[in-house]
Write a protein that binds this DNA or RNA. Structure first.
Lengths: 160, 160
DNA sequence: CTCTACCTTGACGTAAAGGGAAGCTTGTGC
DNA sequence: GCACAAGCTTCCCTTTACGTCAAGGTAGAG
């Protein structure tokens, strides 16, 4: 239950939002910069994945020659992406929300939109949960029927 | 709560297994035969789907010239396929189980295998259910954080 | 100079379950 | 004699989230 190990293995959502709000774009001289490998290790994703996300417009690291250089902001975006994935958003949906953030005109409106999406997702997840519960019931019924049949069959076999 | 309407719209699993055990292969003269359209209507699937299933080896209707002719057995298989889908098996997995049935040597062994698969599925579904519950928790936490932020922002805006 | 590790782009593959459309038959009824 | 309904086959398209080569660049270690 310590809290200093595994810095962001599970990316607390609170921290994500917090990071998002830290918002140290490129304002200060040179914050912490990361290589693609750094982020891959930290968040346990493959390099391919990071490049893929970039290709999809989810992250936009600068270049140092050919190599990608990720800022803290890129890192925060990645965190958001991964948390989005965990709760079931598609990359496209996530991009939509990230793009909204980037517009950051009033911010408030954007947050409201995000909030709505979250609530939609919650509804969807609850529905899926019910479907799974349905499936579970059907399966349990089935297994009990089948095991009943099995017992009959075996009993029959013993009698013959 | 009546039980005579919607014959198989939801295919009771008990009935499925029962059908499977009726086992009227081609033994008796001429049972009931169905056209592709018949089954499509009865189970609310498209013709495309039925042909697709055939393509995947899940059903093997005979031909009357070019046209497909489905036997009661084909129909029972279809029922199993659809129920398998409902509980989350892939078509490939379903085919595997159906093929086992067709080996019908001892039958008992096959039923045991099916039973195992069912239990595996149950485990998977339970896991998914937990994941969904996790996601729900994360989302709920997030929404509360975000709506908290929103309130702050709005309050701040009013003060400025 | 050569290894090795790490990085790059780009194209193609994969799984799942069909959807959709083109274009040909066949049967039925008027 | 023709339209219309149903079927048939074949082939390509879709979505999601990457994995997997291919083919080569670059930098530091020894």
């Amino acid at each position: 239950m310590s809290e200093s190990d595994e810095p962001a293995a599970e990316a607390q959502i609170g921290a994500v939002i917090a990071d998002k709000l830290e918002d140290d774009d490129g304002l200060h001289p040179r914050g912490s910069l990361f290589s693609i490998g750094d982020l891959a290790r930290e968040f346990d994703v493959t390099l391919r994945t990071l490049r893929f996300y970039e290709d999809k417009g989810l992250i936009n690291p600068r270049r140092e020659g050919l190599n990608r250089l990720y800022s803290r902001r890129d890192r925060a975006r990645l965190k958001l992406v991964l948390m989005g994935k965990r709760v079931g958003f598609s990359l496209t949906e996530i991009k939509g929300m990230l793009d909204l953030y980037d517009l950051r005109d009033g911010q408030v409106a954007q947050l409201k939109v995000a909030l709505d999406r979250f609530n939609d997702r919650i509804a969807i997840l609850e529905k899926q949960k019910k479907e799974i519960e349905q499936a579970l019931m059907e399966l349990r019924r089935t297994t009990s029927v089948v095991s009943g049949l099995l017992k009959e069959k075996e009993a029959g076999a013993r009698r013959s």
